[in-house]
């Protein structure tokens, strides 16, 4: 792994390649989630947040933002929702989530697991999206759905956190990716 061929990376360092691969995982997981029937019409598990959660401990802040952009733009292009309110919801929710997750990790350091980080991120995302839904879509009467929206956010945050914690502990892929990232020039 130490020997890197120049390769057709189109001027991208292989450190950025790590971000691209994690971004691809986001897109794959979001496509996968599309296939699984939803228990509630508006309920989403948010599997595509998993790679961001996994990258949080080792990616630089700039690369994390890049990963977020890849996830949101990639979904917008593949699903074709780039110029619709769906894109705005996704961008706002993901950004809030990343910001809060980075904050929780920064404050909690090694005293917080993926579960806590994921929960906080999911709640930030749910709150922002709920706010947008009330202002842009449903109108003020929709505050009645707040407990349901936040409750489902809490549950999905917990589930994604458990997935991430389990995956991070056992994954050889993640270990290889981490060492690849650390060995590569920024």
């Amino acid at each position: 792994m130490k020997k890197r061929m120049p390769g057709p990376t189109r001027g991208l360092s292989s450190r950025r390649d790590t971000v691209a691969l994690l971004g691809a995982l986001c897109l794959f997981l979001s496509a996968l989630e599309y296939l699984v029937p939803k228990p509630l019409p508006f309920f989403r598990l948010g599997l595509s947040n998993l790679p961001i959660l996994l990258g949080l401990p080792f990616l630089s802040p700039g690369d994390l933002i890049l990963l977020l952009i890849l996830k949101v733009l990639g979904q917008g292009l593949i699903n074709g929702t780039l110029v619709s309110h769906v894109f705005l919801f996704s961008l706002a929710g993901s950004s809030a989530s990343l910001g809060v997750m980075a904050f929780v990790r920064y404050v909690g350091k090694d005293r917080v697991s993926m579960v806590g980080v994921s929960l906080a991120g999911a709640m930030a995302s749910s709150l922002v999206q709920l706010f947008l839904a009330i202002v842009l879509v449903f109108g003020q009467s929709a505050v009645v759905i707040a407990p349901l929206a936040l409750g489902s956010g809490w549950i999905s945050g917990l589930i994604i956190g458990i997935f991430a914690e389990r995956f991070a502990r056992s994954s050889q892929f993640l270990a290889a990716l981490k060492s690849h990232y650390r060995d590569s020039p920024p």
């Binding site: 189109r10 950025r16 971000v19 691209a20 691969l21 971004g23 890049l66 890849l70 990639g74 292009l77």
Partner: peptide, 17 residues
């Protein structure tokens, strides 16, 4: 940069698929 990287990202996405 996001656009350039997105090309790589789609490449890996297709590989995974």
């Amino acid at each position: 940069l996001p656009g350039d990287l997105l090309g790589r990202c789609f490449y890996y996405f297709d590989r995974i698929l």
